[in-house]
């Protein structure tokens, strides 16, 4: 196996990147570009769609086709691209605020439609770019710049949401496991229908600082200890599961994707 670098998709002169030391976005981007290379993606056939937030800056580093959109709406833009040209590889990069807080409606509907997009979500449990405010994935009780005495709300389980909404492929990984992340992204890209890879990411600058994990190392250790391979996680009792999360491939199924269904209906309509 050759060692893919993904450099052919990287814009020259852009490194080092803008993200904070310890942030997982760079690891995700590296894994995604290596996955592209290992799958033989051509830059001209690949469209990366981003939203707004730290993750939304990722397109600036790429020399694929790209569309940088509004906060929360990246999946809707990507839906239009893919629906009109199903030959394109369309990948959507979002944060947790983007994908399931402001953009939650688009997220469940993209999964329900099972449109052949790959969503990669960097979940860092808070709004990084705007200064560490609470998001829909901030765990209950945690501290952020807008939950100074603890978060009164509960958090979304993004993977569970994708599963019940109808995604064909759902996986979760942490930057602690870069190689595995790349492998999961490859599977997601290869899967026809809606696929999701959620990346639990450290945000030492904000979430870590507010929750006694100021050092990157502490955040990574937190993710490493909490994250258990899915097989192991499923063996735990419900009470034990509360203290952990599953990593790896969580859902893998082959429901017909939107474009295929649309073409089936077109065949029926034009036969009349």
């Amino acid at each position: 196996m050759s060692h893919a670098t993904g450099v052919r998709y990287l814009k020259e002169g852009m490194l080092p990147h803008m993200w904070c030391s310890g942030c997982g976005i760079g690891v995700m981007l590296g894994a995604m570009l290596r996955a592209f290379e290992e799958l033989g993606y051509r830059n001209a056939d690949t469209v990366v769609v981003t939203g707004i937030g730290c993750t939304g800056k990722a397109d600036d580093y790429l020399v694929t086709h790209a569309l940088h959109t509004t906060h929360g709406r990246a999946l809707a833009y990507a839906t239009g691209i893919k629906a009109f040209n199903p030959k394109l590889h369309v990948v959507v990069l979002m944060g947790d605020g983007d994908s399931v807080t402001i953009g939650g409606n688009h997220f469940i509907h993209a999964a329900r439609r099972n449109i052949d997009l790959t969503a990669i979500i960097i979940n860092n449990f808070n709004y990084g770019m705007t200064g560490g405010q609470v998001s829909a994935t901030t765990p209950g009780g945690r501290y952020t710049s807008t939950t100074s005495w603890g978060n009164p709300e509960r958090d979304f389980d993004i993977c569970a949401l994708a599963e019940v909404a109808g995604a064909n492929y759902v996986a979760r990984e942490t930057p602690y496991h870069g190689w595995e992340m790349k492998e999961l992204i490859k599977e997601a890209l290869n899967k026809k229908g809606f696929s999701l890879v959620e990346v639990f990411s450290p945000c030492p600058t904000h979430f870590g600082k507010n929750n006694e994990m100021r050092q990157t190392r502490e955040m990574l250790d937190w993710l490493k200890e909490k994250g258990l391979p899915v097989e192991q996680y499923r063996k735990l009792s419900v009470a034990e599961q509360e203290n952990h999360f599953a990593i790896g491939k969580l859902v893998d199924r082959d429901a017909t994707d939107f474009n295929t269904r649309y073409e089936e209906i077109r065949a029926r309509a034009t036969a009349l």
Binding site: L67, Y77, T79, I81, Y262
Partner: peptide
């Protein structure tokens, strides 16, 4: 292609995406 989206925000977004495609 015709798509009924989840709302008007998504509708114009999909239109822009398709136009760029």
């Amino acid at each position: 292609v015709y798509m009924q989206m989840e709302d008007e925000i998504a509708s114009i977004a999909a239109v822009i995406g398709a136009s760029l495609a």
